[in-house]
Design a protein around this nucleic acid. Sequence first.
DNA 1: CACTCGTGGAGAAACGTATCTCCGAGGGCT
DNA 2: AGCCCTCGGAGATACGTTTCTCCACGAGTG
Lengths: 385, 385
Amino acid sequence: MTAAANQSGRRPTTSRRLERAGIRDVAAAAGVSITTVSDALNGKGRLPDETRSRVREVAERLGYRPSAAARTLRTGRSGLIGLTVTTYGEEPFTFTEFAYFAEMARAATSAALGRGYALVVLPASSRHDVWGNIALDGTVVIDPPDQDPLVSELYRSGVPVVSDGKPGNCPVTAWVDNDHEAAVLGILDHLSEAGARRIGLLTGTSTDTYTRLSTEAYLGWCAKVGQEPVYETYPAHDPAAGAVAADRLLARPDRPDAVYGLFDPNGTDLLAAARRYGLRVPDDLLLVCCSESDVYATTEPPITTLSLKPRRIGTTVVNLLIDAIEGVDSGTGVDIARLFPPRFRTAGTGPPPGTLMPTELIVRASSQRRSPRTTVSPPRLPGEV
Amino acid sequence: MTAAANQSGRRPTTSRRLERAGIRDVAAAAGVSITTVSDALNGKGRLPDETRSRVREVAERLGYRPSAAARTLRTGRSGLIGLTVTTYGEEPFTFTEFAYFAEMARAATSAALGRGYALVVLPASSRHDVWGNIALDGTVVIDPPDQDPLVSELYRSGVPVVSDGKPGNCPVTAWVDNDHEAAVLGILDHLSEAGARRIGLLTGTSTDTYTRLSTEAYLGWCAKVGQEPVYETYPAHDPAAGAVAADRLLARPDRPDAVYGLFDPNGTDLLAAARRYGLRVPDDLLLVCCSESDVYATTEPPITTLSLKPRRIGTTVVNLLIDAIEGVDSGTGVDIARLFPPRFRTAGTGPPPGTLMPTELIVRASSQRRSPRTTVSPPRLPGEV
DNA sequence: CACTCGTGGAGAAACGTATCTCCGAGGGCT
DNA sequence: AGCCCTCGGAGATACGTTTCTCCACGAGTG
């Protein structure tokens, strides 16, 4: 083996530490060329099965593991996909803080792995330039703000970017988002049907697409049905502010008789606020909030939630991204037409193709006037089954 | 520029597509050698500040981004750390399913990023060999089972491995774990002091360290105080089985008057089972379960939980791993003595160094006989703030 | 004057793979 | 007999860094 290695003209160093076997060593041991080894292991080239299996066996015996770094350098593919959330905060890294992110990230990871890619979770910015140190085939960006410099930088360096959340003004390869307008309108209609006369909204101050589109849909609906808008805003990343805003909303003189909260904790906050003001849910106040958490199935009363189906989003985003990565290939650009079937594409010329995904309203007691008699805090009597 | 590139003797191809600027291009544009560029950008070598800044400026102007792949190939460092959970299931990828994993992974990610590394979440196994395709500087393994082939393989190929959970028979570089024995004994004592006469245990069937050590501690305690063990086991990854096991435990003729549940959902399951059997908590049944979820702060009654402090674990694991990675350096092995101060090392000769971290018992109403009168569902009176 | 020594920097060898090009040897066909 | 075609495989190059080695040169120094 040493002879073979030297014969191939390298490792002139005297101190032969134990090193991982390279493709050269396999070639020498199998008595073939490097090309043959590469072809045999990767199933390329034209080789008789006998040679192929022999090479494979030798490689196995030597414990040969191809160097991912070398392969990446050569092929330009790393099999790595970045996942980042840019909007919410910097360091504390709110990932998995909200159930939405956790679910979405999990689905994305699974989808990526299913296609042979791995996910790297990255912050929008960090002290060390981690981004520059990692070879990424593409990036998934969650909720990019307008003019996100990170996205622009990535796009400029040729890395495909697919965003979760319709991008405001970022040049992304593609995007996926829920149909927020339809979702909000659906909820408002649902609440109206349940008897709501004045529907309030608990929304955020940030400018991300979700907040913006949802709020706009609400305002538009108000204008259409002739209701005066009743809403409170707060910085969505501040949990304490949410409770305060919920309180404010219910303290208004024009107190709504139904509220939709855009963020996950709004449900409990609104419920608590309602209790403070002596409002019974759903009798005096109808409640819906957007959340992926199943704790709302067991609150008192259970709260109707809007699910954004983060699993579907995560899966779709990753698949779109990988399609783009593998489509870039040798051509000068992406064959977008093939990647995104028209049925899912928004009409338009220049802007990147987007996919709108439906949401799901999980109707529970909190938004039904005539609900199966959910008593407020039923004190179950000690007794038998 | 093209002239410069050709002058350096490459790119004989006629079709000059737009390519990312390489270090050569920067060198040519700045009128220095490649070495100088590399040194200037990496702050190595001996260069006058003037040269350094000039090179930096040229690189900036050209939008030069060093190739992570090439750097990795050359240096043998990728800046990537694998994170994997081997025990629980295969495909569904239970990550972030339990709050423990989510918290731990988040802390690990943060800690890694803080030191310039990124985390890659990987499954114990997948169809595509993702492991082989990624250059990993090290790996964090959560709860490795005995004789984990993955860990062995990693260790054999020289990748440092630090495990969360004391490894049974795996050759890891280091490990971190909670002091499960102390935790269980503490809980049992706590329950005894609260008046428990017969303490039951809800535990798992799997052989991971956590389950094993906890169960052994329980059995040992029973033997010591002379109580007959009362416990039920179930496959921890099956949520439905947990409810059934909880029911079994409370249906026994030798029904315990206090129960400790080893897994996150046990609290709600036990609570539900207690209701079914008409047992009041904590009056008829004391309850403690191990969980990171804060829903137990708002259950009826609030349930005492044991927190494994996953954030601390995640941070420690990653720091230990990076210490090992950066300690391996050029020497033949790790300078372990320097990395792990004696105060945290378990005594022993051969086995890998381990760190035991404390847990925290969050005492709530469910484990206190004389609790501050937590009324069942206090109906707050309608009124003002 | 010969010498060392520090400064600033250039050259070139890896790192380990994938792949493009090319080549020899048979074998069948005309 | 000459020619082409396919099979099986070898050689060499490029991917883009980092880093080891070495060199030129000017200034002190004995």
